[in-house]
């Protein structure tokens, strides 16, 4: 006898939607450890409500999923990117360690946002528009792809710095570099202080995440602050998960599992050197990501795990255009639940 019918690991868009839908007929628990890639998203929902409130999740998104389709949701100008939503146009002056009397140049993709914010703080900052948002890269990015992308981005920044003046130059955040120190030193070769800007979280993403969590919480058991450490295998199925609760561990048994831990950035596929590693250590991973057959993950010995399904960015080939992440992930949830049923 299992503790629950379904355990959902991951509480981002894929996990929360899966939990909401499955809870209609089954006893579901969902883990909520860490920050999701959904919360990091800066995408805006053009056809949804501006505040991503719970009513929209309840009355618009869920019914559409239930009827097998979802309306088009386009992004504004950022969205969930392959590089993990780290390229933002708005930098946060509050968190930047810059003295007020310094003259600052900001390499920014926005249009004068920094100038206004800097002025509000009394910083004499000058924004310089520079295209440092990378062009789309292959589906299912690997760690090495991200590194190459970040290196190209750093080259773009170095080029743009030629026209920057002042004591301090703020550059966008750099993620995925194999040796960030080396790149920062090379940028500092210009003889001025170079700072990486700290970015604020995307409010649209946070609002969406909050609404999703509230929707899921009203329907299923939320295992707050817990991360799944290990999944126990029995034959071609899995039966239990060991969850970390503070310094204690809790074992929970289930009939089925939804794996929605996200991709490279969300922690579902962890980088190990230049390779990818599936965080629960049970399933097969190759250069393109987690191996899946008709929605079910494949064990390392080639057997297909019959009572687990994969949703969201952990699926290989999941493509996120600007603002397109939501519709893609939501549809993957629908397919995943069909596979489970």
């Amino acid at each position: 006898m299992s503790d629950i019918d379904v355990l959902v690991v991951g509480h981002g868009l894929a996990g929360s939607l899966s939990a909401c839908l499955l809870s209609r007929t089954m006893c579901v628990a969902m883990t909520t450890g860490g920050t999701t890639a959904t919360a990091l998203s800066t995408g805006c929902l053009a056809s949804g409500p501006e505040t991503c409130d719970i009513a929209w999740i309840e009355h618009h998104l869920l019914p559409l999923l239930g009827y097998g389709g979802i309306g088009y949701v386009s992004g504004d100008h950022h969205g969930i990117t392959e590089a993990g939503s780290v390229h933002r146009s708005q930098m946060a002056p509050r968190f930047v360690d810059v003295p007020h009397d310094a003259s600052v140049s900001v390499l920014d993709t926005g249009t004068g946002i920094w100038d206004a914010k800097g002025a509000a703080r009394g910083i004499a900052a000058r924004g310089i528009a520079v295209d440092v948002i990378p062009s789309p890269i292959d589906r299912s990015p690997t760690w090495s792809m991200l590194t190459r992308q970040a290196e190209k981005m750093t080259d773009d920044i170095r080029g743009a710095m030629a026209e920057a003046s002042g004591d301090v130059i703020l550059v966008p955040p750099l993620f995925g570099l194999s040796d960030p120190e080396r790149y920062m030193r090379s940028l500092e070769g210009c003889g001025r202080l170079v700072r990486e800007a700290v970015v604020p979280l995307g409010l649209p993403g946070m609002r969406l995440q909050e609404a999703l969590l509230r929707a899921a919480s009203s329907r299923c058991t939320v295992l707050e602050g817990m991360r799944a450490l290990v999944i126990r295998r029995e034959g071609d199925s899995i039966s239990a998960a060991v969850l970390q609760d503070g310094r204690r561990q809790r074992t929970i048994t289930f009939s089925s599992l939804v794996l929605a831990t996200g991709g490279l950035v969300g922690g579902g596929l962890e980088p190990k050197g230049m390779d990818l590693r599936e965080s629960l250590g049970l399933f097969e991973v190759d250069g393109t990501g987690l191996q899946v057959q008709e929605g079910h993950p494949v064990f390392r010995d080639g057997a297909v795990c019959q009572n687990a399904v994969v949703a969201g960015a952990l699926l290989p080939g999941m493509e996120y255009g600007d603002g397109g992440g939501l519709i893609d992930v939501a549809n993957s949830v629908r397919r995943c639940l069909e596979a489970l049923s």
Binding site: T35, A39, V86, F95, F175, E196, V199
Partner: peptide, 8 residues
């Protein structure tokens, strides 16, 4: 090396 700079 592995910080995402997300600011969370």
């Amino acid at each position: 090396n592995s910080c995402l700079k997300c600011g969370r």
